[in-house]
Design a protein around this nucleic acid. Structure first.
Lengths: 112, 112
DNA sequence: CTATTATTTCTACAATTCTGGAATAATAGA
DNA sequence: TCTATTATTCCAGAATTGTAGAAATAATAG
């Protein structure tokens, strides 16, 4: 993942309405929802929803597919995971163990 | 993590300069860098850097500590991890296996 | 082909955000 | 105390973004 893609994904999610759309779609994985269903769930004006959906799609966070008269949308969970990896990728100049000694195994203190 | 915190973290990272600052700090974990060092690395005007650092700090992505005349900054890697979890948390209404059949078991297989 | 439903594009305006010069504050040393 | 160094706040202009009404486009059924 490149910086530009990460920036696009972050910018896409860094907005209340779009975050709500994305989370709604995450919740409805793996079936997804149509544009109209999203509009109903979140009570959004068609133009507003379309605008945000476009942003999310361009950022690779939502995929859409024509399904008859409807357009079916799905959250791309993998994009979020790629984003997380991108953000911590050069951690400690390639030695992530140095800064996160307890990251790979939940040993003590916090039980998640 | 609440929606507001997630939104703040996403908005903080969704900006070219701030993303650069954060990634620089990630790279310099666990020692961190002073504000002045960050300014040198990225060639930023003091006011600009201060503005962005404040945003990152308020979002919980950077911690800072007074160190004599300097202020020492460190990236909070954990915040990114929390963000990733937040974004996919209600995936498939609590049954993440449904949409990501290979996600939770992939942990062990990726050992280089 | 026509009517109906679903979604997008056009358009404009309000609100927010980014940037950097100058002034200010805080710390350390002489 | 005074001075040099480091970092922040104040300020204002420029640029970007979010919203939604109205019109246009796309797809299907009859």
């Amino acid at each position: 993942m490149k910086t530009d893609s990460a920036l696009a994904a972050l910018a896409a999610l860094a907005q209340e309405t779009r975050l709500a759309i994305f989370q709604l779609l995450v919740r409805y994985e793996p079936e997804g929802l149509t544009v109209g269903e999203i509009a109903q769930h979140l009570d959004l004006a068609p133009a507003t929803l379309s605008f945000h959906l476009k942003t999310l799609t361009q950022a690779g966070l939502v995929s859409s597919e024509q399904d008859g008269r409807h357009i079916h949308c799905r959250a791309q969970i993998e994009a979020v995971q790629a984003l997380g990896q991108f953000l911590t990728m050069d951690c400690c100049k390639g030695q992530p163990e140095r800064c996160k000694p307890a990251s790979s195994s939940a040993r003590r203190s916090k039980a998640a």
